[in-house]
């Protein structure tokens, strides 16, 4: 990655390129998105798709503005976000210590990596029916499923982050008489933290995805998922479905950006957390 950047600066005068870039790329980005929606509209008209099936983009845009102002929708967003974030935080609290213990111990590492290998492929949504039976369709059930799905992601990243710490650094600290716990606190955790955080970023996306999926299936559990399904069933107002889904995309983007800048703030010493750039 770094090579590409280096070469770019070598070939082009750095200042000229850097200065021009953000504005043009924003313009290109807007052009791209406009072109995309225009293409969708054109394809819809050309293929004679009804407006119930594929509302025109300007209708969706107008609806999106109304939806954002709608307190009912914002309430649903709040329900989804709080379930996703609660589950995520609890999963982090469970997974990071577990991962540090298993990652530093060689024997348990082997066993746990096998367990992860078996547990990770199980699609979380398969657990919605059992969770519905056991916990009912409420916030608890959502949080439980988010914990389950994100736990493995954070655990996996923690274990590999802890194992990826340069042994030389640990040895150096030991030579200087730092205790085992001291090595953990002052060498292992600071150098593993950015990679653990990468896992948290992936898990955050998964948390939102799982929450919305659960809400769609479990009627009465509230949130964006249920909101989308209710408008899907009201056939004449399909533009709300599109608007709601797009807004949840914007929500996902905001979440990603917030987490990325939080990462830069928390781990200024790390390249990995500071946004991978291009």
């Amino acid at each position: 990655m770094s090579q590409t950047v280096l070469k770019g600066t070598a070939r082009h005068p750095a200042s000229a390129r850097r200065g021009r870039r953000p504005l043009t790329s924003v313009a290109y980005g807007i052009a791209g998105i406009v072109a995309f929606f225009a293409a969708v509209d054109l394809a819809g008209v050309a293929a004679n798709v009804s407006r119930e099936q594929l509302p025109r983009s300007w209708d969706v845009a107008a609806t999106a503005a109304a939806v954002v102002a709608d307190p009912e929708f914002m309430h649903a967003v709040g329900e989804s976000l709080s379930a996703a974030l609660t589950g995520l935080v609890l999963a982090i609290l469970l997974a990071v210590p577990t991962g540090v213990v298993f990652g530093t111990n060689r024997r348990t590492f082997a066993a746990v990596s096998v367990l992860i290998e078996f547990m990770r492929p199980l699609p979380v949504v398969a657990l919605i029916p059992p969770a519905l039976l056991m916990l009912g369709a409420g916030a608890e059930m959502k949080v439980a499923l988010v914990i389950y799905s994100t736990f493995w992601i954070v655990l996996f990243n923690t274990i590999y982050a802890v194992r990826g710490v340069e042994p030389l650094q640990k040895d150096a600290a030991k030579v200087f008489g730092v205790s085992r716990l001291g090595v953990l606190a002052r060498v292992v955790l600071p150098s593993a933290a950015p990679f653990i955080y990468t896992g948290v970023q992936i898990a955050a996306t998964a948390a939102l995805l799982v929450t919305i999926g659960v809400e769609m299936l479990a009627g009465g559990s509230g949130g964006i998922g249920e909101w989308l399904m209710s408008y899907l069933n009201a056939i004449t107002r399909r533009e709300y479905v599109y608007a709601g889904a797009y807004i949840s995309g914007v929500l996902g983007l905001v979440l990603t950006l917030v987490l990325a800048s939080l990462g830069r703030l928390l781990f200024p010493w790390s390249k990995a957390a500071g946004g991978r750039g291009k």
């Binding site: 119930e52 099936q53 594929l54 996306t205 939102l208 995805l209 799982v210 919305i212 999926g213 769609m216 964006i224 998922g225 989308l228 399904m229 408008y231 899907l232 399909r238 479905v241 599109y242 709601g244 889904a245 797009y246 949840s248 995309g249 996902g252």
Partner: peptide, 12 residues
């Protein structure tokens, strides 16, 4: 857009 939120669009 969370993959699950894409489902209602495609059902519509």
């Amino acid at each position: 857009i969370p993959s699950t939120a894409k489902i209602p669009i495609f059902i519509a």
